[in-house]
Deep mutational scan, measured.
Amino acid sequence: MSGIALSRLAQERKAWRKDHPFGFVAVPTKNPDGTMNLMNWECAIPGKKGTPWEGGLFKLRMLFKDDYPSSPPKCKFEPPLFHPNVYPSGTVCLSILEEDKDWRPAITIKQILLGIQELLNEPNIQDPAQAEAYTIYCQNRVEYEKRVRAQAKKFAPS
C-alpha cells in the first residue's frame, strides 16, 4: 500500500471527524483483525431537504486505489439507486470521479460526498449510466419523482 495514499486518507479521516456536513457519514471499514482499512470507507449521503430525495439516507462505498490521490476513489451505492447517473452496479457516474475528466488530487472526501448529493437531485442527462431511470427522467418527470420519493422512504434511517 502506498504511504502517500494512507497518509492522505488519515488526514481526510481526521478532517472529517473534526468537521463534516450534518447527516453525512464517512467511516473507514475494519479489517478482520480489527485494524482500520483506510482504503475502503462506508459512507452515507442524506437526501437534500426540499427535494424528492429528502428523508432518505443512501449508503455508498468509497474504494481507494494505491495511487490515490492521483486517481479518484470508486464510489458505489449499496444497494444501487434508481438514478440516471448511477450504473446498474451502483457505481456513480460523475465527472469529478473520473481521472480523465474533472478529478483533481486536491478534491476531498467531503467535496465528493457533497457533489454526489447535488447530483442526486440534478442528474447530468449528457452522461446517462442507467437506461430506465434516464428514460423516465426525460419522458415523465412526475413518475420519476414518485419513484425517487418511494426510494427515499425505503432508505429512511430507522
Rank of each mutant, 00 (worst) to 15 (best):
S71C: 10
E122T: 14
S89F: 12
H20P: 02
K59Y: 10
D66H: 12
R141F: 11
G34H: 14
I107E: 11
R8W: 04
C75Y: 03
M39G: 09
P157Y: 09
W41C: 00
I116F: 07
F24D: 12
S70N: 14
E132K: 07
N140P: 11
E12P: 02
L57R: 11
R13H: 04
C75W: 10
E42I: 02
T35C: 01
N85H: 01
R141N: 13
A133H: 05
R17S: 05
I4T: 10
N31L: 14
Q139P: 07
V25R: 13
P72F: 00
K65F: 08
G3V: 10
P123N: 01
C75D: 03
V25L: 10
N31A: 08
L63T: 08
V148F: 01
I125G: 02
V142E: 13
K154N: 09
N121E: 13
P46H: 07
A44T: 09
G34F: 04
C43V: 15
K154G: 02
L60V: 09
T135M: 09
E132V: 08
F82A: 03
L113A: 15
V86E: 04
E54D: 06
P73V: 14
L57W: 08
L60K: 05
I109S: 05
Y87S: 01
M36G: 04
H20M: 00
N37Y: 13
G56D: 01
I112D: 05
P52H: 14
I96N: 02
T91R: 09
F64N: 06
F58I: 05
N40F: 07
P88S: 13
R149A: 06
G47E: 02
P79H: 15
K153S: 10
K18G: 07
V148Y: 03
K30E: 07
E143A: 12
F64K: 03
C138W: 08
I4V: 08
N140A: 15
K30N: 06
T35Q: 04
S7H: 07
N85L: 00
Y137W: 00
H83G: 03
L94Y: 03
P69G: 02
K146Y: 12
A152R: 01
L119Q: 02
D102E: 10
L114I: 12
F22H: 08
E42D: 12
K65G: 11
I116P: 01
D33K: 02
P21D: 04
P80V: 07
D33R: 01
P157W: 13
I125E: 06
N140Y: 08
E12D: 00
I125Y: 02
A44E: 13
Q11D: 12
K30M: 09
P69H: 03
K154S: 14
L94A: 04
W16Q: 04
L114V: 15
P79S: 14
V148C: 12
K154T: 11
G3Q: 05
C138V: 08
S70V: 09
A10H: 05
E54N: 04
L120K: 03
K65A: 04
F155K: 06
P21R: 00
D19L: 04
S7V: 11
G55I: 08
G47W: 08
G34M: 10
F58V: 09
W53V: 05
Q130F: 07
N124A: 08
K154Y: 09
E78V: 13
D102L: 04
K76M: 13
V142N: 15
P46R: 07
L63Y: 09
L94W: 05
I136T: 10
N140V: 01
P28F: 06
T135C: 15
D19V: 06
D33V: 01
K14G: 03
Q139H: 13
D127H: 03
P79N: 15
I112P: 02
P73N: 02
A133Q: 03
K154W: 06
L9D: 15
K48G: 02
V86S: 10
C138G: 08
Q117A: 14
A10Y: 00
E78Q: 11
L63K: 13
H20L: 03
V148E: 02
A150C: 10
Q139F: 07
F24N: 05
D67A: 12
I4A: 12
F24A: 02
